[in-house]
Design a binder for these strands. Structure first.
Lengths: 140, 140
DNA sequence: TACGGCGGTATCCGATCGGAAACCAGCCAT
DNA sequence: ATGGCTGGTTTCCGATCGGATACCGCCGTA
């Protein structure tokens, strides 16, 4: 029987990340606001309920390569939005990434941006299509 | 009291854009939020008080090349955030770019993001420096 | 001993970004 | 007719982004 290491480390058990928390059909690139690089906003979201491990983050960020994840994490770390915490004391290798106070604060305007996008989703799609149609018949 | 003379065209005399409205020392790239490409947020800001001409926009966007400005404008147009209005009736060539309703709405979350950045400016700088210093002595 | 999981690096590559510079047509005033 | 202004386009180029792939040491388990 496998014993959860979380207990040994006195760690609180949190729900695992939903592998489908990011809809591949309407991914964040369509959100007109961006924070950092391609993956950064999603990483921030993943960390909002507490620290997560490298391999834990890879799950909802479907298809991300180790390199890209490392890069994004380092970038967010350099900006001071998250902290890398390496546990040496434990029995096995464990590295966790946690939002700093600054990073947590970043979630507010990020939420606002996402909310705006949700509210104007139809308009966004419609405007894009109209502009595309206009480009075909209009000034071309 | 001075009277605007261009009102027959429905055009109101507005203050010209401040050539230094974007501080080259703390430019928007330091803002962790972005809208579209490098120049897009600044262009949106330039248009918030009404339509502007191509050459008018070039002034505060110091050093922007024609190509980059055209690119950014086309991108924002494709997204439905602004509209290109070419005046054929007039005597001289005149092209104006104006925010759409959607684009104007975009200013709200953009303001929120800028406001957040202003509020946390010191922390942002400090966190960056701390992370940089930590990288030198820390996990290396 | 071998194997698998973890948390990465190193290298290569094609795509994209964005600036520099040259060029252009139409209109205007001199 | 000549030069200047407007609103671009085109070409070239170096830098950066981001994915694919291969590889790595460390640890725990079988």
């Amino acid at each position: 029987m496998k014993k959860p290491q979380a207990e040994r480390a006195g760690r609180v058990e949190r729900a695992p990340l939903d592998p489908e928390m990011f809809d591949p059909v309407c991914p964040s690139p369509l959100v007109p606001f961006r924070v950092g690089d391609k993956w950064a906003p999603m990483i921030l979201r993943c960390l909002q309920d507490g620290p997560r491990r490298f391999s834990e983050l890879k799950i909802p960020l479907r298809g991300i390569t180790s390199k890209s994840l490392t890069q994004s994490l380092r970038g967010l770390e350099r900006a001071g939005f998250l902290a890398r915490e390496e546990q040496h004391g434990g029995t096995e290798r464990r590295v966790e990434y946690a939002l700093t106070a600054l990073g947590r604060g970043l979630l507010d305007p990020l939420d606002a941006a996402c909310e705006w996008t949700r509210e104007h989703w139809d308009e966004l799609i419609e405007a894009q299509e109209a502009a595309l149609a206009g480009a075909e018949s209009g000034h071309r």
